[in-house]
């Protein structure tokens, strides 16, 4: 008599490899003739359900390459990258990197970055809820301390840097009709430019903002727990005309900050 752990291992192998022989234990009806189509229901369920999870998370990526291409790409990915937990909102973190190395998609060099942006949207969608601070949070600080303050950034925030206009490409694909201007966005020779994105969910809706290179540098530094002064310095290195007051108020008006504090006083706050 074969033990259940061994049968389960055999069934698992047969599920992962569609060419694998079916386990001897698997039976259809009393006479045990040809259970292949029956067993394939499980193979299909596994493959299709994971493809559908990826479709839900990467809808613009799918729109760009079309349903059939996406299905092939998602199937190849999921075959070698089964989820490591039953929490499907965590599935697909490695998909953008997989797309980058997926040979049939080499002609679409921006595709992986669009997928990165979509993954950032999923992270933002499910991130912890926090009420953003308003700019009044600064009122409690002496002016001399302002360069030393640190911000705790909203947990929904991701910053995406791309050689391609990812934000414009993503926005263009929110429309039903895909016109010629989208194709131009995706074509280096007709003026494609690099873009950086802020993805954030201050309240219920996930928002995507396009950032200037200096603001990207500024926010990256703050996210790395640099002080306001250090972050400004990094931004000025990128762009000497970096607008300090506008970027400071932008932190609050866009819901980016949840706690403002002086590092020395860290324990006193929140």
């Amino acid at each position: 008599m074969i033990e259940w752990p061994d049968i389960q291992s055999e069934v698992s192998r047969a599920l992962q490899n569609s060419d694998a022989k079916l386990p001897d234990s698997v039976r259809s009806l009393e006479d045990n003739k040809r259970p292949l189509k029956r067993f394939n229901v499980y193979r299909n369920n596994v493959a299709l359900s994971l493809i559908n999870v990826l479709k839900d998370t990467f809808p613009v990526t799918e729109k760009i390459v079309g349903e059939d291409f996406f299905k092939t790409m998602a199937r190849d990915f999921s075959r070698d990258n089964l989820p490591q937990s039953p929490v499907m909102i965590e599935y697909g973190a490695e998909f953008p990197a997989f797309i980058k190395n997926f040979a049939p998609a080499y002609s679409l060099p921006y595709l992986s970055d669009v997928a990165r942006l979509e993954w950032a949207r999923t992270i933002a969608y499910n991130a912890a809820d926090h009420t953003p601070q308003s700019i009044e949070a600064l009122a409690g600080f002496n002016e001399a301390d302002i360069p030393n303050i640190c911000f705790i950034i909203h947990p929904s925030v991701s910053l995406i840097q791309s050689d391609w206009p990812v934000v414009s490409i993503w926005q263009a694909h929110q429309r039903e009709e895909i016109d010629e201007s989208i194709r131009n966005l995706m074509n280096k020779e007709t003026g494609a430019k690099s873009e950086t994105a802020l993805v954030i969910r201050p309240h219920l809706d996930v928002l995507i903002h396009s950032l200037s290179p200096s603001t990207y540098e500024f926010l990256s530094a703050l996210k790395d727990v640099k002080t306001f002064g250090e972050a400004v310095e990094k931004a000025l290195n990128i762009d000497p005309a970096f607008d300090i007051p506008a970027n400071l108020s932008g932190l609050f008006s866009n819901g980016i900050v949840i706690v403002t504090h002086l590092p020395e006083n860290h324990t006193e706050l929140r």
Partner: peptide, 16 residues
């Protein structure tokens, strides 16, 4: 069952 060493299959699988 739905999980095995390789990971999570996202389907409800049969047992003897």
């Amino acid at each position: 069952w739905s999980s095995h060493e390789a990971g999570y299959f996202n389907d409800l699988l049969p047992l003897p």
